[in-house]
Computed example of a mutant assay.
Amino acid sequence: MWQGVIPAVTTKFTPEGRLDAAEMQRCFQLQMEAGCDGLIACGSLGEGPMLSHEERLQVLKLTKEVTGPKPALLTVAEAGTREACQLAEAAAKAGADGLMVVPSTIYHTDARETAANLRAIAAAADLPVMIYSNRIAYRVDVTTDLLEELADDQRFVAVKESSDDIRRCTEILTRLGDRYDVLTGVDNLAFEALCAGAHGWVAGLVVAFPAETVAIYRLVKAGRIDEARSIYRWFRPLLDLDVSTYLVQNIKLVEALAIGSNDRCRAPRLPLAGERRAQVEAVVRKALETRPALPKV
């Protein structure tokens, strides 16, 4: 149902800290023009937890205006199941094509609680759901066993696999076949996951380098592995910026340098400064200087 490159877009702010609709529309459009297959609003990279429900619904509506017939998903990542269900229901009314759902972000649920949490949210929205499994960042592992348990609910259609274990993609596909679309959610494991059979890539650095991201995905799917690998090796230093406590600040700075956007964040985050900023700028400068020509695919 959801395959290809689906960016987890950033949320743009004005200097006063309000949502910057015009800049979001511009940046989102760059993704779609490059051939992306949908957009995910208000995830970790989109600073969703720093936004009110009302703001998240505004970003969703902007996202849907740009994606057109392609899917626009809203991320649901709440501490409590009640609040998650409220947001999920509101997203459905606001026109979301589906949800990306993170299990409870504060209390680290066990398997029984995780299943109950996910089922409640899916029922509240009655929309297709991508389960976000990220045991590193959120300390809740949606294992293959748990995916098998949830498979009886057809609203669960996909999993964003971010366990940081490349073996997990193969494990899910081997045991569950085509029951779920498996999308890799770790930028600097994307080539490996796609070669292992992942159906798509929920990408981060795509927001600054959409053409290169789409090219890697399409080349792998076309069996042109050497060409995809060559681009990926060039891309890796940038992709490593996604795997960091500072991924939001990192990627927003890359956007500022690569596509002329800005790196404003919602507090308590602040834009990068000092040595850390200089390091990211150096990575981006080198990437821009050595940017490869992309083959037709």
Rank of each mutant, 00 (worst) to 15 (best):
Gly4Pro: 05
Ile6His: 02
Val9Ser: 06
Val9Glu: 01
Phe13His: 07
Phe13Ser: 08
Pro15Lys: 03
Arg18Ser: 13
Arg18Val: 11
Ala21Trp: 06
Gln29Asn: 04
Leu30Ser: 13
Gln31Pro: 04
Gln31Arg: 04
Asp37His: 15
Asp37Glu: 11
Leu39Gly: 04
Ala41Met: 05
Gly46Gln: 01
Met50Cys: 11
Glu55His: 06
Gln58Ser: 10
Leu62Asn: 03
Thr63Pro: 07
Gly68Pro: 04
Gly68Glu: 02
Pro71Lys: 01
Val76His: 01
Ala77Asn: 15
Ala77Leu: 10
Ala79Phe: 14
Ala79Met: 08
Ala79Asn: 13
Gly80Tyr: 12
Ala84Cys: 01
Ala88Pro: 04
Ala90Lys: 11
Ala94Ser: 04
Ala96Val: 01
Leu99Trp: 00
Asp110Arg: 13
Leu118Thr: 00
Ile121Ala: 01
Ala124Gln: 01
Tyr132Met: 00
Ser133Cys: 07
Arg135Pro: 12
Ile136Ser: 12
Ala137Glu: 14
Tyr138His: 15
Arg139Asn: 14
Arg139Met: 14
Val140Gly: 11
Thr143His: 01
Leu147Gln: 04
Leu150Lys: 01
Ala151Trp: 11
Ser163Gln: 01
Cys169Asn: 13
Leu173Ala: 02
Thr174Gly: 13
Asp178Ser: 13
Asp178Val: 10
Val186Phe: 05
Phe191Asp: 06
Ala193His: 13
Leu194Glu: 05
Ala198Asn: 05
Ala198Pro: 00
Trp201Glu: 04
Gly204Lys: 01
Leu205Trp: 10
Val206Gly: 03
Thr213Arg: 00
Lys221Thr: 14
Lys221Val: 12
Ala222Lys: 03
Glu227Asn: 11
Arg229Gln: 11
Tyr232Ala: 12
Arg233Val: 13
Asp242His: 14
Asp242Tyr: 15
Val243Pro: 07
Tyr246Thr: 12
Leu247Asn: 14
Val248Gly: 05
Ile251Asp: 12
Lys252Ala: 04
Ala256Gly: 07
Ile259Thr: 11
Ile259Asn: 04
Arg269Pro: 14
Glu275Lys: 06
Gln279Met: 12
Val283Trp: 04
Ala287Gly: 05
Leu288Trp: 11
Pro292His: 06
Pro292Leu: 02
